[in-house]
Computed example of a mutant assay.
Amino acid sequence: MSDINIVFTRVDNRLVHGQVGNVWVTASGANLILVVDDETCNDELSKSLMKMTADAVGVQIRFFSIKKTIEIIGKAAPSQKIFIVAKTPQVIEQLVDGGVPIKHCNIGNMHKSEGKHILHEVHVYVDDQDEACLKRLKEKGVDVYIQITPNDRKYKI
């Protein structure tokens, strides 16, 4: 699976929205957004809204479950420059454990919710499970960092 052209991987609990579509897709040079989320791949309304964002920036978009991503990503064409986006770091860890060659993981928006505390001043809230997952990703060789937009400073975790 190492020949897969994954150009960017991001955790963002909003998945695909204006910031991802207009800023990160352009900065990464991606031509395909791969939304990996078991729930969203069955939610037609969410998919249609995200597809509008992808269409507006001229890239393809796919919606796969974690299992399907692991099974099918090895069939990606070399011309596909893949931008993976998931809601949680746990999804990224499952992909890595399933053999998806993710080398870098940008932590974007992880919003405040019950039981979460601030990890970084700009929209990154985690609980103990999130922190443990981020640590495991680093131990597995993934460069994990916080950067909200490409023009912002990178914060190593």
Rank of each mutant, 00 (worst) to 15 (best):
T53L: 08
S28T: 03
F64G: 06
L45Q: 10
V36T: 11
V25A: 10
I66M: 13
V36M: 11
I70D: 00
A56S: 13
N42P: 06
G74V: 01
S46T: 12
K47T: 13
P78F: 02
V20I: 03
V11S: 09
D38I: 08
P78T: 05
N42F: 13
F8Q: 13
R62Y: 09
D38T: 03
C41P: 05
K51N: 15
N13Y: 12
S65Q: 03
E39V: 07
Q80L: 12
L49T: 02
G58E: 14
Q19F: 12
G74H: 02
A27T: 14
A77E: 02
V20W: 03
I73A: 01
G21S: 13
A76P: 03
S79L: 14
K68S: 12
L32V: 14
L32E: 03
T26R: 15
I61K: 00
K47G: 11
M50V: 01
A76V: 06
Q60S: 09
L49P: 01
A54L: 11
S28M: 04
I72V: 13
A30F: 03
Q19A: 05
I70G: 01
D43F: 10
V23C: 09
E44M: 10
A30E: 04
L32R: 00
I66Q: 15
V36L: 14
M50G: 08
K67R: 12
L49S: 12
T9F: 01
A54W: 12
K51F: 09
